[in-house]
Simulated assay, not measured.
Amino acid sequence: MKKFSHTATAAAMLLVSASLLAPLGASAQNVAVVNGKAVPKARVEALLEQAVKSGQPKTPELEAQVRDEIVLREMFLQEAEKRGLAASPEYKTQMEFARQSILIRELFNDYQKKNPVTEAEMRAEYNKYKAQAAGTEVRARHILVENEELAKALIAKIKAGESFEDLAKTNSKDPGSAANGGDLDFANPGSYVAEFGDALSKLKKGEMTSEPVKTQFGYHIIRFEDSRPAQFPEFDAVKAQLEQRMVQQKMADFRDSIKAKAKTDYKFSN
């Protein structure tokens, strides 16, 4: 009987080891096997990545939930396919809508990646808003009531020496200022409705309107408290908000450009 050489024995052992390790290597790529079908770990990694991008922290608990979800999906998927649902018209219609949605989303994601809002663009926009906000801010107090008679009665009380602030707390129906004695803080005069702004502009510091001022909200008693040069936040304080708004505007412009250059006989409703 011919004996194996040491070289032949070593080669045979390598072949056996390789045959044993092959299934281990394959199983390392899968998270499970469901009804004989492997569920690849790549699915888990892809879904986990989506969850993290949406803002969820990557934790062992989240990873376990994602694995469970992927395996459950495979079970449900196999059952749906077994019942022939993949051939139904409803399924095909929904798949087409899903394909369109995903492709359109990728179109806008691709545009955003290739056309980011730059620091220079943000600073230019910031300076534009800052220039528009230049001027004077005014601080006013007001008491807002529903009818003219009550407003006139309150004016009389204030002229007789009662506290404007106390009457505002007990009578004003403006939830944003009543608790603070009618204080509206500093604001651009143009931010008020026309009737309110016009009445305020005629007052000097410390003066109050002698007659109720009617607006769409009711009847106001207005007192001019103070004025100062317009304040504007520093760039870094509004940078994130500014960037978000500019990204949205760029995306809207991109959408409109596609719509404008498309050749169609369709008439949009707006």
Rank of each mutant, 00 (worst) to 15 (best):
N147P: 12
N147F: 12
K152C: 09
K152P: 12
A153F: 03
L154Y: 02
A156G: 07
K157A: 12
I158G: 06
G161Q: 03
G161V: 01
F164L: 02
E165V: 12
D166K: 15
A168N: 00
A168H: 01
T170V: 05
N171I: 04
N171C: 00
K173W: 12
K173T: 13
P175Y: 13
A179M: 07
A179T: 07
N180D: 14
G181D: 04
G182W: 00
F186R: 05
F186S: 05
A187G: 09
P189M: 00
G190M: 02
S191G: 02
S191K: 04
Y192M: 07
A194G: 08
E195G: 02
F196L: 01
G197S: 14
A199Q: 06
L200A: 08
L200G: 06
K204F: 14
K204E: 15
E207V: 07
T209G: 11
S210R: 15
E211M: 05
V213T: 03
T215F: 05
T215Y: 04
I221G: 05
I222P: 05
R223S: 03
R223Y: 02
F224E: 00
D226H: 01
D226F: 01
S227C: 10
S227Y: 15
R228Q: 03
P229N: 14
P229W: 14
A230N: 01
P233S: 10
F235L: 11
D236P: 05
A237N: 12
V238C: 07
K239L: 06
K239H: 08
K239Q: 11
K239F: 06
A240Y: 01
A240N: 04
A240I: 02
L242I: 09
E243P: 06
M246R: 07
V247M: 12
Q249L: 14
A252M: 13
D253S: 03
F254E: 03
F254S: 02
R255H: 15
D256P: 00
D256Y: 00
A260Q: 15
A260E: 13
T264M: 00
